[in-house]
Design a binder for these strands. Structure first.
Length: 416
RNA sequence: GGAGGGAUGGCCGAGCGGUCAAUGGCAGCAGACUGUAAAUCUGCCGACUUAUGUCUACGAAGGUUCGAAUCCUUCUCCCUCCA
């Protein structure tokens, strides 16, 4: 492997973050000689970040750890346009209020990974609505628009794919890459930002910014992308039973988050440890050597470390403990999802199917019935094969009833 | 502006008057095997206290018919060709 001089590039490459870079040698040299300011843009497409955003956040984290300054750019302006990259359809347009509420909600997650402040390497939070909202059409076209050729834009993947698939691409969306390019230049002007990080799908957009920088401000800007993270079986990461893996605790509990990492496929453990934890590479190398059932230990480390980063040591430990109790001892952990049922209601008895639905283990009563018929349901670890059986106060053990759907999904019913 | 074609369940995609809650594939859930892994095999996969029952659903609204995802009319959106 090539040796790089800067801690930054050394770390990013060794940990598997590098996919493409516009000029790696020059960036390496620059990172050796001083503080590099770099940014990643996040559009407010939801009120929480998800696992797909995590790789880029980890890149910013390493950037800061190796003595540079990260900027998290909130797409208050660009969200109003909608990035066509990787999409067959136009995104639904959101109004200002929604976008601003989402941005506010996103910001908390970043604080877990980056240290914000006013110091030399403290992270900055910036919103591109600050400069995009006030743009004037004609001056913008003349100053910035003239540097973009349609010829070039048509060759961009995001555009090309849409056209090839005969899906409509609106003029609004067509402008997205211009605005993202302009963001880069604006961040250079305001903060001396010379590097944009992002996922490999952002390469085209990033390149536009780099080109624009050379033309408009005569500066060499750098682009650096990380690979799109998929599991070794090729599935896109971040999809689970419950949908996307969100970073917000209200949408995806620390326990679920822990379990998500705990269930990593064997072949991904080493790669994920490098990308999603702070563990030193020597330690990871040791864990990677584990084979067979022992690799579960590596998965536990991965789960604990990743959860600690996002939700804190306390919550991570609780999640790990709950998982240990639930899976290794067949007991009940405190972090399991809980439903409260009144004691009087239980006295008369509740049908099993209804209980599973209310505990969130099935989305509808019908699904709960199917679960029970299929033999996947357990009450207090006893197989429940009659959907109509009444669960009464007799089932209460130590004040709770434990429900299981399959081997991995559990919930507890508490009396009130 | 003119002429054609299309819109089906989370996605892809059959069906073209009854037997259609709608073939198939993907995704998902459960079971078996395991290591809370992968692969494989099996079952399930609109809702309703489950019922040879009811309701909702094949872009939207009307209509024809004993009966419509399927036929007709209007509307909306998309695609292709011509101008």
């Amino acid at each position: 492997m090539t040796q790089y001089r800067s801690d930054l590039i050394q770390t990013l490459t060794a940990r598997g973050f590098l996919h493409q870079c516009t000029n790696l040698e020059a960036l390496d040299a620059k990172a050796t000689s001083g503080v590099v300011t770099a940014y990643v843009g996040y559009d407010a497409t939801a009120d929480s970040l998800h696992i797909g955003n995590l790789v880029s956040i980890m890149m910013l984290r390493w950037l800061q750890k190796t003595g540079h300054r990260p900027i998290t750019l909130m797409g208050g302006g660009t969200t109003k346009i909608g990035d066509p990259s990787g999409r067959d359809e136009t995104r639904v347009l959101q109004d200002d209020a929604t976008i601003n509420a989402r941005i506010a909600s996103l910001q908390t997650a970043f604080g877990r990974y980056l240290a914000y402040g006013t110091g030399k390497t403290d992270a900055l939070m910036v919103n591109n609505a600050d400069w995009l909202d006030g743009l004037q059409y004609i001056p913008f076209l003349r100053d910035i628009g003239r540097h973009f050729t349609i010829n070039r834009m048509l060759t961009m993947d995001s555009v090309k794919l849409r056209l090839e698939r005969e899906q409509p691409l609106t003029f609004l969306e067509f402008n997205y890459m211009i605005l993202q390019g302009y963001d880069f230049v604006e961040l250079y002007r305001r903060f001396g930002c010379t590097l944009q990080l992002g996922g490999s799908d952002q390469w085209g957009n990033i390149i536009q910014g780099v080109d624009l920088g050379r033309r408009v401000v005569d500066a060499e800007l750098f682009g650096f992308t990380c690979p799109l993270i998929t599991t070794s079986s090729g599935a896109k990461m971040g999809k689970t039973a419950a949908g996307a893996v969100w970073l917000k605790a209200e949408r995806f509990s620390p326990y679920d988050y822990y379990q998500f990492w705990r269930n990593t496929e064997d072949g991904d453990v080493g790669r994920f440890l490098k990308l999603f934890t702070d563990l030193p590479l020597e330690e990871i190398a040791r864990l990677e050597k584990l084979e067979g059932a022992e690799i579960n230990d590596a998965k536990k480390v991965l789960a604990l470390e990743a959860t600690t980063l996002l939700h804190g040591a306390e919550a991570a430990k609780d999640a790990a403990e709950t998982a240990r109790k639930t899976f290794e001892q067949g007991g009940i952990g405190d972090d399991l999802p809980t439903v409260e049922i009144s004691a009087t209601e239980l006295k008369t008895g509740i049908p099993a199917w209804s209980l599973f639905q209310r505990a969130g283990l099935a989305e509808s009563n019908g699904e709960a019935r199917r679960l029970i018929r299929g033999g996947g349901a357990k009450v207090n670890d006893q197989k429940c094969d009659d959907e109509n059986v009444m669960v009464t106060a007799d089932a209460v053990v130590d004040g709770v009833i434990k429900l299981s759907a399959g081997k991995k999904r559990h919930a507890i019913v508490k009396l009130t």
